[in-house]
């Protein structure tokens, strides 16, 4: 579930960040301000927003469409996690592409690149920062508890995730189990970040 949310955040966040970093348009500063706000959004408020949108009496839930996920389902949790993570991915990606020498775009276009090829070249140059953006998004998702608790309901074998399970077990006084789950969560995060570090390759050594 977190993987799907991270994939969606990446698919939305990287192009958005690249567009904000590389183009100039009326209202760009406003969009950036909204994105920055999203980067620091309290997850529980995102959870509340998604809850209200998807509940049966909410603007989306009342439509009754198959494409709109129901509350207390993993799909609803993915929606909440994606909303939490994609501004982080977009914001860090924007900063990374803005750090690339602006003459690079002109020079690769001069070598015959299409606009897409030039954008891809810039993202490749900014890959250290772009991967940091994905790491930040992953961190936002995996550490999140308030939103998934609200929209998922912490239902056993369905919408219970490690963070919500830790909260539950702590409340029940099962500290050993809570600590064990915490260690599993940290280990998962460590190995996932290790994998992303490999993607950065030798660029970290430059």
């Amino acid at each position: 579930m977190s993987g799907i949310a991270l994939a969606l955040s990446t698919v939305i966040g990287i192009p958005l960040g690249a567009a904000l970093g590389l183009t100039r348009f009326v209202g760009r500063r406003l969009v950036i301000a909204v994105m920055y706000t999203g980067m620091g959004f309290p997850p529980v408020v995102v959870g509340l927003f998604v809850y209200l949108m998807l509940s049966r009496s909410g603007p989306l839930g009342s439509l009754g469409l198959d494409a709109i996920p129901e509350l207390f389902t993993p799909a609803a949790m993915v929606v909440a996690q994606t909303i939490i993570a994609f501004p982080l991915v977009a914001g860090f990606t924007m900063a990374a592409v803005m750090g690339v020498d602006p003459n690079l775009r002109l020079q690769v276009l001069g070598l015959g690149a299409t606009a897409w090829q030039a954008t891809w070249a810039i993202l490749a140059e900014a890959r250290t920062g772009v991967i940091v953006s994905v790491v930040a998004g992953f961190g936002g998702i995996i550490s999140e508890v308030g939103a998934v608790m609200l929209v998922g309901g912490n239902i056993e074998h369905s919408t219970r995730v490690l963070t919500t399970a830790i909260v539950l077990e702590t409340r029940k006084g099962n500290f050993e189990l809570a600590i064990a789950l915490g260690i599993i969560l940290l280990s998962l995060s460590f190995f996932a970040n290790l994998a992303m570090l490999r993607l950065q390759g030798s660029s970290l050594n430059e």
């Binding site: 020498d101 690079l104 002109l106 020079q107 001069g110 140059e125 430059e206």
Partner: peptide
Amino acid sequence: VTTVFQRPVLLR
């Protein structure tokens, strides 16, 4: 057509 610029920006 292609250009050699005064200050080349090379790829990493």
